[in-house]
């Protein structure tokens, strides 16, 4: 555990909680892609199956349970409790274009051809692109609420911090996991355009809106 890893995890946790609180307090999931949230729930479910097979630490187990619990709570709020506020017309990204290729790739390129390992690989690949329905939705409506941009910033920052964590681990532990690193770079790159808008607009007190 190093500082980048810990702050990355906390940033991830902050993102998840910001989103839950935003929906809960405003009693609305307007502007939130339910499809991205389903993909994240799928990511955590397929990645954390090792909860049943191995114990790493109390921290590890607790965080996994919190992430999974929050992911399903978010999906529940969007598709059940506040379904009337869900903007399905703008959430039109075709998720099968992500899930099918990612599924194929995880069968082809993995560390070990075993069910758990393939599901872990699937979750890593899927996480790297799971935000695309959300970004697509923002590009379609041309704007995002400020609180939604804070959520996205924390979520992007988390994977960027993990990149520094992997650099750290490579130098000090000689450890690297090529699958996680490549997917992590892809994931972080997808946020770059958003990071730019966040810094140039949201941090200067303006609402995030894209030119028509």
């Amino acid at each position: 555990m190093n500082i980048f890893r810990l702050t990355g995890d906390l940033s991830h946790l902050a993102a998840i909680i910001i989103l839950l609180l935003k929906i809960w307090k405003s009693r609305s999931c307007a502007g939130i892609s339910g499809k991205s949230q389903i993909l994240f729930a799928l990511v955590f479910t397929t990645r954390y199956l090792d909860l049943f097979t191995s114990f790493i630490s109390l921290y590890n187990t607790c965080m996994k349970l919190i992430y999974i619990g929050c992911a399903y709570a978010t999906v529940y709020l969007i598709y059940a409790k506040f379904r009337a506020t869900y903007d399905g017309n703008h959430d039109s990204f075709r998720v099968e274009f992500l899930v099918v290729p990612v599924g194929g790739l995880s069968v082809l390129i993995n560390h070990d051809f075993s069910p758990l390992e393939i599901l872990w690989t699937f979750s890593i690949y899927l996480e790297s692109v799971a935000i695309l329905p959300q970004l697509f939705m923002i590009s379609k409506t041309g704007e995002a609420e400020t609180i939604t941009t804070h959520y996205l910033f924390c979520l992007g920052l988390y994977r960027a911090l993990y990149l520094f964590n992997w650099i750290w681990r490579f130098y000090f532990e000689g450890f690297f996991d090529m699958i996680a690193i490549v997917a992590g770079v892809v994931q972080t790159v997808l946020y770059c355009d958003f990071f730019y808008l966040y810094v140039t607009k949201v941090l200067k007190g303006k609402k995030l809106s894209l030119p028509a």
């Binding site: 090792d50 191995s54 114990f55 790493i56 630490s57 590890n60 996994k64 992430y67 993990y162």
Partner: peptide, 10 residues
């Protein structure tokens, strides 16, 4: 589990 098996990460 060893820290180096990677799955200690979230």
């Amino acid at each position: 589990k060893e820290e180096t098996d990677g799955k200690d990460e979230l």
